[in-house]
């Protein structure tokens, strides 16, 4: 009986592992292999291509042709490095702005009457009912030179000539802040909503002004939410492709866009794969840190 039980348990636990292996590790292995290949005028556009008909000898000789050249060229090609650094900068600025915008919203939601909170959460995630792509497209109509924002500002005589926002890095930041706001809002809300309101009273009682109560009690106690929200925004924002492609200009360098160009326009699969592998390695770092922070926050005995 215990044996069958443990088998059933293993099966249940095995399902997520199998999922990760088939849909995540296997594709990653393919990309890793492509990153070690050479570009070729062929279909697929790289060599060597392994085949079951090669036999053991063919397999071994093909393995010897694998090369780290794509990785070497990554360091030489400024385009990848610049794209990567630019992606980090845009993602970092966007994350910071998202945090600053989301925090007051989350605070207002957490302090709202308990009956109103489910409605507010519903409103916060309401944009998800519309396609992400369509919502980003909508921003073009808002931001372009003859768009709604410029029209409104000119009608109010705040500006004489249209502001060029569309097709700039600023438009990309606006797009990211808009699109990822709920991912920041929800972890912040959950961290703030859990706080005991008596702690704020205790701080006020001990002489803390409302600003000090926020800085000394509310903010530090929401740290886990801030970290979670920032990672949920920052990590996908670094590799974001749709937003820079639709809202950015031709000079907007972001790694997702550069990868896409290399893959589909230049058909240089090995270089693009190598860049993707490096991007992954660089993003795993903050993820591990975040996981540690989360475990640290939850693992404390209460």
């Amino acid at each position: 009986m215990p044996k069958r039980f443990s088998l059933a348990r293993r099966l249940v636990l095995g399902v997520p592992y199998l999922w990760i292996a088939v849909f995540f590790l296997a594709p990653m292995a393919l990309i890793a292999k492509i990153s070690l290949s050479r570009p070729a005028q062929a279909r697929p556009p790289y060599e060597p291509v392994f085949s079951l008909s090669d036999g053991v000898g063919g397999f071994l000789s093909k393995i010897q042709t694998l090369t780290f050249e794509a990785y070497r060229s990554f360091g030489e090609d400024r385009l990848y490095l610049d794209s990567y650094l630019n992606s980090l900068a845009i993602a970092a600025i966007s994350t910071l702005v998202t945090l600053l915008v989301a925090y007051p919203f989350a605070l207002a939601m957490a302090r709202a009457p308990a009956r109103a909170r489910p409605i507010l959460i519903g409103l916060a995630v309401a944009p998800f009912w519309t396609s992400f792509l369509i919502r980003v497209y909508a921003w073009i109509a808002l931001l372009k030179d003859e768009g709604l924002v410029n029209h409104a500002l000119m009608a109010l005589h705040l500006i004489d000539a249209p502001l060029s926002i569309y097709a700039t890095n600023l438009a990309v930041v606006i797009g990211i802040v808009y699109s990822y706001l709920p991912f920041m809002l929800l972890p912040l809300y959950s961290a703030l909503e859990r706080q005991d309101p008596l702690l704020r009273e205790a701080a006020a009682d001990l002489g803390a002004s409302p600003a000090q109560v926020f800085l000394r009690v509310t903010l530090p106690l929401s740290r886990a939410g801030v970290v979670a929200g920032c990672l949920l925004v920052f990590i996908p924002a670094v590799g974001e492709f749709v937003i820079p492609d639709l809202l950015g200009g031709s000079d907007t360098l972001m790694i997702g866009k550069t990868l896409w160009t290399d893959f589909f326009a230049n058909r240089d699969w090995p270089s693009a794969s190598a860049a993707a592998m490096i991007l992954l390695a660089l993003l795993i770092g903050p993820l591990v840190l975040a996981e540690r922070a989360r475990l640290g926050a939850e693992g404390r005995p209460s």
Binding site: E201, A202, D205, G207, P210, Q212, V213, V217, L221
Partner: peptide, 17 residues
């Protein structure tokens, strides 16, 4: 916060951080 009065809360309300 401007009253020279302090309170000890029933649940203590100690700052966990």
């Amino acid at each position: 916060h401007r009253r020279p009065i302090n309170m000890m809360f029933q649940s203590y309300a100690l700052f966990p951080h």
